[in-house]
Design a protein around this nucleic acid. Structure first.
Lengths: 145, 145
DNA sequence: TTATTAAATTGTAATGATTCCAATTTAATA
DNA sequence: TATTAAATTGGAATCATTACAATTTAATAA
């Protein structure tokens, strides 16, 4: 838990119960949850919790680059405790977002290309859209019935 | 204009005035417009046009892969006439989306890696977030005042 | 420990993109 | 020209997110 305290301190953010709880939840659930999922979970042990607090803090934590906001989902934002550069796969069927554990060696040269145009890069995102393994298998089972 | 007719015919979609107008607008405006921008423009020459028609057709055209929907913007969808694989740069300041003309040679091997996990890939997206050249210059000018 | 203050939290209301739906119109076909 | 499935329409509904003003609290200094 001290790890989260340090993260907040380093970024000059006040240590609040909610922030620690949000960080712990995201650290424990690497499924790229939505604000609503986080809210529903934390509300159980903290009935007075406001949805706005979740939104405020997810923004604050994202702005401080303690977590990262994924905007690859068409309907809602998703949040990731892992701020290291990594790609994602998003399933059009079930909406799951899966980490792609494959470093792209070309990124640095593309970044250089973009920077050479005069733009300042702050984030790099790569993702694939399609149908995940589980949903494909479910479909196959349904068809062979 | 026949080009657009062919696109629709090939995909077994009815040839309607609105669809042709949407395709022409997207072809002429490679700025990745929003549904609202397209609606506002086409309404000028077609007052009876409904916003829902724009939404319906953008979905239909995206589903048929005649155009592509970009979901990289946190607040709204953007649409691209260019369905060829290409990356984007999105400015956090002005919201502009700029094409990145740089083919990533690594894509095929990452795709293979993801496919080997059992997932089916249908779309590939890469984008950078940051501050564009124009906004950087504007900021510099403001600071030196 | 206590007082101070800027920041965090709260709940409600507002926003705004998108979708839903039922009625009407139209493009494609026979 | 008649038929019909698909497209269009407009208004209502949805739902994630934001705005806001009042209240509470974490951090700091006395």
């Amino acid at each position: 838990m001290d790890e989260y305290v340090d993260l907040l301190k380093t970024n000059d953010l006040k240590i609040t119960h909610h922030r620690l709880a949000i960080l712990k939840y995201l650290d424990d659930h690497r499924t790229h949850p939505t604000a609503e999922e986080i809210y529903q979970h934390l509300k159980k042990t903290n009935p007075g919790l406001s949805r706005t607090t979740i939104y405020n803090n997810l923004e604050t934590l994202s702005d401080s680059h303690i977590i990262q906001r994924l905007t690859i989902c068409p309907t809602e934002h998703r949040y990731d405790f892992n701020i290291g550069m990594h790609h994602h796969f998003i399933c059009k069927e079930c909406g799951d977002i899966i980490d792609v554990d494959f470093q792209c060696p070309t990124v640095s040269s593309i970044k250089k290309h973009v920077a050479d145009q005069g733009h300042r890069i702050e984030e790099v995102h790569g993702y694939f859209k399609g149908i995940c393994k589980d949903c494909l298998e479910k479909k196959r089972r349904e068809q062979s019935e």
